[in-house]
């Protein structure tokens, strides 16, 4: 399903990164970076909540608003019951919608916000998303200090909190259109190979977006997928070619960009809901601001993984949502 928007703008964004991201290529572009995993909090879970809290605070400063002037907060993360978002929202006191689509949450939030802003349900929305490497490891895999071997094609959950402010005020970046993806299950059961799980969903959403909008891949100066990693990226390119006969142009993957994969021990790149927005709200927005690129398609990919279902030997479904941004 593709929606077109005439009057929705991302006015400003904020980003907070964790220690690994702060050593990555975009370290200077984040609003704030932490050197440890606790940020002065007592647990990983409260630390993740702080990422949302603080990114919203930074954003409110940037757009010169108080939290009482915000109509809606849409937020999501990886924790069970969206704990981090819930606790942040309880402190912020803004009307709140919690959303979950794993690593596709960022764009899911932007799509809901864009629809509500376009149809004047609300005047402004803040869309937040956060992920925390250690909190995610604890919930989905093994204890953080456990050094059990992982295959080299697995990805490393990013630590970061990102927020975007959307309204009808003509400022920042225009939201041109969005495509809501369908859940795809290609029968992959390997929890370490999330790139392979998500590549098919990503490909389907890109194809649907291009065919619904009658655009060629070359229309975009950058098509940026969420967190396929360096191997998932290759799977997507081949999948698009064989399934849809589309040769992706100007394509890149946020997971492969956010870290220095050769230098940092992050396996095949980043992952997590914060991975795409950390790259999109820093590096990509900067490039759009300087007019180096004008049209961008963000495709957030999410592996809808549940540890119980994986233990029951079921395959992992995945989803991807796309949003198209244009320089004003």
């Amino acid at each position: 399903m593709t929606n077109k928007y005439d009057n929705v703008y991302i006015n400003d964004v904020s980003t907070i990164s964790g220690p690994y991201e702060a050593k990555g290529p975009f370290s200077k572009l984040y609003d704030k970076s932490y050197n440890d995993f606790y940020f002065g909090e007592k647990s990983f879970e409260t630390a993740e909540s702080k990422l949302i809290d603080e990114s919203v605070d930074i954003l409110l400063d940037k757009v010169d608003k108080t939290r009482f002037q915000i109509d809606l907060l849409i937020s999501g993360d990886l924790m069970n019951q969206l704990t981090s978002s819930n606790y942040a929202a309880s402190r912020l006191g803004i009307p709140f919608l919690g959303v979950y689509n794993a690593c596709a949450t960022s764009v899911e939030g932007l799509i809901i916000a864009s629809n509500m802003v376009e149809h004047k349900c609300v005047d402004n929305v803040i869309c937040s998303v956060a992920s925390h490497n250690n909190a995610a490891e604890k919930q989905f895999r093994y204890p953080v200090e456990y050094g059990g071997p992982k295959p080299c094609y697995t990805t490393f959950t990013t630590t970061g909190g990102c927020s975007a402010y959307l309204s009808r005020e003509k400022k920042g970046v225009r939201v041109d259109s969005s495509t809501i993806g369908t859940v795809v299950d290609m029968g992959i059961k390997d929890v370490y190979n999330m790139g392979a799980v998500m590549a098919a969903a990503c490909g389907d959403t890109i194809y649907k977006h291009l065919s619904n909008t009658k655009r060629e891949p070359g229309y975009y100066d950058l098509i940026l997928s969420g967190d396929l990693g360096i191997y998932g990226k290759k799977i997507l390119v081949e999948y698009m070619r064989t399934e849809y006969n589309i040769n992706l142009k100007n394509y890149d993957d946020a997971a492969s960009m956010i870290f220095d994969v050769d230098r940092q021990s992050v396996y095949a790149g980043g992952s997590g809901p914060a991975c795409l927005p950390l790259v999109a709200y820093s590096y990509v927005m900067e490039k759009m601001k300087h007019g180096e690129i004008n049209r961008v398609l963000l495709v957030a990919t999410g592996a809808l993984m549940n540890t119980t279902m994986v233990n029951q030997k079921l395959s992992i479904p995945s989803i991807a949502h796309a949003i198209s941004l244009e320089v004003i």
């Binding site: 992959i188 190979n193 590549a199 399934e243």
Partner: peptide
């Protein structure tokens, strides 16, 4: 796309662990 065909693309691009070295 058939699941089997997709799996073959996945296998093509997923690197293998060096089991001999690990052992």
């Amino acid at each position: 796309m058939e699941k089997r065909k997709y799996q073959s693309i996945v296998n093509k691009y997923t690197p293998k662990e060096n089991r001999l070295y690990n052992a």
